[in-house]
Write a protein that binds this DNA or RNA. Structure first.
Length: 220
DNA sequence: AAGTCGGGGAT
DNA sequence: ATCCCAGACTT
């Protein structure tokens, strides 16, 4: 682990301790693996604040795969409609049926098994492994991709990004670290107008440093 | 590899 | 008006 990588991880975890969205309902320790899986599906291409308004009532009504399969499809669609991408109602329905048929209604703790579920791709599978089963890895979503590509100066579409990200996960704190990157990328290292002026990582950030170099260039 | 889904908040 | 959001599925 290089010095720069260590700084990245430690400053991010420090920032998260002070500024993280710790009250999000799907982050509660009491959540079951299925409740976590449902959260990850609802969060696909959807802001956390939007999911916040629908999540608690959703998992209260459909706490298990059996409950979800037994529900009328119309009700599922209604519950997801305010979030958009309503085909996720059908995804959750099929996924729950697969959980019931193949895994006796339990969420499997293996990546390949999770990937076989309808509506579960690479990000969702890894996120469930991390948050429900404490696995030592990283999941790469748009936030992680943007943050890591900017800070380390890596092409966001390259294979190197995933490998770099995976090597960062701190032992025993993969869950906190992923949440830290998500929250940090959502409020500081934003897609549009990142808040570099108040960024605790800027002294080591490749993107900020290259921006500074070109600003100095222009001012002379 | 590209196209599609989607309502809602932010700018 | 446009961009963006804890992506994955279909073609």
């Amino acid at each position: 682990m290089t010095s720069t990588r260590r700084v990245f991880v430690e400053r991010l975890l420090d920032w998260y301790h002070e500024n993280g969205r710790h009250a999000l309902p799907w982050r509660e320790d009491s959540r079951t693996a299925f409740e976590i899986l449902v959260a990850e599906v609802l969060l696909q291409r959807t802001t956390a604040s939007a999911v916040e308004g629908a999540y608690v009532s959703f998992v209260a009504r459909y706490p298990t795969p059996a409950c979800l399969v037994a529900a009328p499809s119309d009700r599922l669609v209604d519950a997801i409609e305010p979030l958009g991408l309503t085909k996720r109602a059908g995804h959750l329905e099929r996924c729950s049926a697969q959980l019931w048929e193949r895994y006796a209604g339990r969420v499997p703790a293996e990546r390949t098994a999770l990937l076989s579920l309808h509506g579960v791709g690479e990000y969702t599978a890894r996120s469930v492994l991390i948050h429900a089963f404490g696995e030592h890895t990283v999941a790469v979503d748009t936030n992680v991709r943007r943050l890591v590509s900017r800070f380390f100066g890596i092409d966001p579409h390259s294979d190197a990004l995933g490998e770099t990200a995976d090597a960062l996960a701190p032992e025993g704190r993969s869950g906190d670290f992923l949440h830290a990157m998500l929250d940090f990328a959502a409020s500081v290292c934003r897609a549009r107008e990142p808040r570099c002026d108040s960024c605790p990582l800027r002294t080591r950030c490749r993107r900020f440093e290259s921006g500074r170099a070109s600003r100095i260039e222009r001012s002379q």
